[in-house]
């Protein structure tokens, strides 16, 4: 930091640039608990009426709790699958002397960069053929598979930081390679697994296009699809309702993000897609 240079003009300029974002997110909250007179954006009454969707299910739509449960199930299952599969495969790529290891490593890097969303047409047709269309299981498997290359790559990075000597000591102590992984190495990468789990959970919770295409209807709808269909319905335009559902939907994301910022920033910076 060069002390003698004034910083306030920069802060001012950044504040002006950031104003639209701040405004949008501020009103996301404000509009859900207030009413404003038409044409104005200064609230004149406090109300909880926009939150009625929590206990009153509009006709023709699934209950918000059903949808929330689906979202939770979807995000929890994909993230669990991602950490299990990645923590296994990441260890192989980081530590085990397997044939074609270089090929696997290159494969993971290519898959990590490869835009899986381009495969959605084929996946859509395959799920229809094998009868997993419009099921949570189908879309969970697809989402987990798509997030997995990043997961493997991150887990490999975490394993790389575990000292080799710990593994060597383990096998000298008589433990099998499996026991060494399970009992000695996995505990060392716990924080990494947690970060990956959190990251994958948030990715799953936020996912829209996959459930929209692969599991769009009724019983298996997740929050993102539910909210999108609410917004797309031209007959019931109610911005305050959209925002209330939206706030309900985004709140866990914001809370987790603010609490575990430090865990997440590294992963986001390390190249998630978007």
């Amino acid at each position: 930091m060069t002390g003698h240079l004034k910083t306030w003009p920069i802060i001012l300029a950044l504040s002006i640039l950031s104003a639209p974002l701040v405004l949008m997110y501020a009103y996301l909250f404000i509009d859900t608990v207030t009413n404003s007179p038409p044409g104005s954006f200064i609230p004149n009454e406090f109300t909880l009426e926009h939150w009625a969707f929590l206990w009153h299910t509009p006709p023709g739509r699934p209950s918000i709790w059903r949808v929330t449960f689906n979202s939770l199930l979807f995000a929890a299952s994909t993230s669990l699958l991602v950490i299990v599969v990645s923590s296994m495969a990441g260890y192989v790529l980081s530590r085990l002397n397997v044939p074609a290891r270089g090929f696997f490593l290159a494969g993971v890097m290519v898959l990590h960069a490869f835009p899986a969303i381009t495969l959605i047409v084929a996946i859509f047709l395959v799920l229809q053929m094998i009868g997993l269309y419009n099921t949570l299981i189908g879309v969970i498997l697809v989402k987990a598979a798509i997030d997995m290359p990043l997961g493997i790559w991150l887990m490999k990075g975490f394993y790389d930081t575990v000292p080799w000597e710990i593994e060597m000591a383990g096998i000298q102590d008589g433990a099998s390679r499996f026991t060494v992984w399970r009992k000695l190495v996995l505990p060392q990468v716990k924080p990494g697994i947690f970060a990956l789990w959190l990251f994958a959970f948030l990715l799953g919770w936020s996912e829209f296009i996959l459930p929209q295409v692969l599991a769009p209807s009724g019983d298996v709808q997740v929050l993102s699809v539910y909210l999108a269909s609410l917004i797309a319905d031209d007959n019931n335009f109610d911005m305050a309702l959209f925002k209330s559902v939206g706030l309900f939907y985004i709140a866990p994301v914001l809370i987790l993000f603010f609490v575990f910022q430090n865990y997440l920033m590294n992963i986001y910076g390390g190249g998630s897609k978007g």
């Binding site: 000597e165 710990i166 060597m168 000591a169 096998i171 000298q172 008589g174 099998s176 505990p187």
Partner: peptide
């Protein structure tokens, strides 16, 4: 024989104690 069956005790430079 694999390491596990040799019953060798090793003290490493970094000690390699199990941190957890």
């Amino acid at each position: 024989l694999p390491s596990q069956e040799r019953n060798v005790g090793v003290v490493f430079q970094s000690y390699a104690l199990y941190p957890h």
